[in-house]
Simulated assay, not measured.
Amino acid sequence: MIGAEQFAAALLDQDYQFFSGVPCSRLTGVISVLSSHEGRYVPAANEGAALAMAAGARMAGTRAAVLIQNSGLGNMVNPLTSLVLPYEIPVLVVVSLRGWPVGTDEPQHNLMGNATKSMAGLCGMSSMLLEPSLDSLEEALARAQKADVDGKPFCLLVPKGTVAAANPAPSPPNGVLSRVDAVRTVSERARDAAIYSTTGYTSRELFAAADRPGNFYMQGSMGHALALGLGSALRRPDRRVVVLDGDGAVLMHMGTMSTVGHLAPRNLLHVVLDNGTYGSTGSQPTTSPTVDWPALARANGYRDAWLCTDGAELRTVLDKALTQPGPCLVAVRIRASETDVPPRASAELPLPGIRARFEHELAVAHGDS
């Protein structure tokens, strides 16, 4: 296995000076090491933005690399095929292989795990599967160097167990309320609503605390819980829809907030649990400390918005938000550090089963069956 410090040192020795990405738990050690070098690692809202920033750094004369999970490769297709490749901007793309080999990971990773290598090729990127040795890393970086000379990006595929972990950076102070208490409070107050919960620990906490057919646990598609809830809210104006979101997920596809405000569904409540980190990938920091959530929501057309910092305030605000016309946003500052994390919903329920019972519950509530 390659040490995280060794992996990072090899990149720096090859004069890579700018790094960006969206964290993956399998690259958390490398990101932690690079982040310890001030100004080297820039957290991106999404993978496409990470690639564009890296391309901009390369055009400014700095060798640049992007570190992502293969599920985010889809977010990179547009800037890859319409910016980096046609303009011949060489960037190193380090991709962790989730869902590969197929059947060794959570079900939401299987399709991309099987398609990653061929997808990179279809997009015009040369790639190499990294083995857990420094010799393999040396060969990969030599290939990346050749691609760089040719003005081409290069994709380094990193399977599980190839790169070791490292001590994560300490979580920044953010709030006093725990995620589980915040999730339970929302679930108790919104027990008659259809609840969409975002990927990561939020869905795990909701499943453990208050599993019911009216909960939809989104285990992939980071950043799209709000769009998912919006679609249902528009088609079911008779039903309260609550989207239980995270700060990193909202920032990834923040433009959906503008769509919500423009269409203004009166039955939609958007709850953002803000811990200032990507909790399920190693607690790397997000950029949420500089976000004014109520101001952002109102600027996008939400009818009302609040920021809560403790349980009592959250309960009071939810009682108000769930009884007045939306769309409304409730942001909650929660603790960044959590020790006990429940299992995923898919440990007990198949993903199609989660969808089927949710759809059935909505249909019954609508009188369709």
Rank of each mutant, 00 (worst) to 15 (best):
A169R: 14
A169G: 07
P170E: 15
P170L: 15
P170K: 14
S171R: 13
S171Y: 12
P172M: 15
P172C: 14
P173T: 12
N174M: 12
N174D: 04
G175H: 10
G175E: 13
G175R: 11
V176C: 10
V176M: 13
V176P: 00
S178M: 09
R179M: 11
V180P: 00
V180C: 09
D181F: 09
A182M: 11
A182K: 03
V183S: 03
R184T: 11
R184F: 04
T185F: 10
T185S: 09
T185Y: 09
V186R: 01
S187G: 00
E188W: 11
E188F: 10
R189L: 06
R189G: 00
R191G: 00
A194H: 05
A194N: 01
A194W: 04
A194S: 08
I195N: 00
S197C: 12
T198G: 04
T198W: 05
Y201L: 06
Y201F: 13
T202R: 04
S203Y: 01
R204M: 13
R204I: 10
L206Y: 03
F207G: 01
A208C: 08
D211A: 12
R212L: 06
R212P: 09
R212V: 06
P213C: 05
G214C: 06
N215A: 06
F216V: 05
F216Y: 13
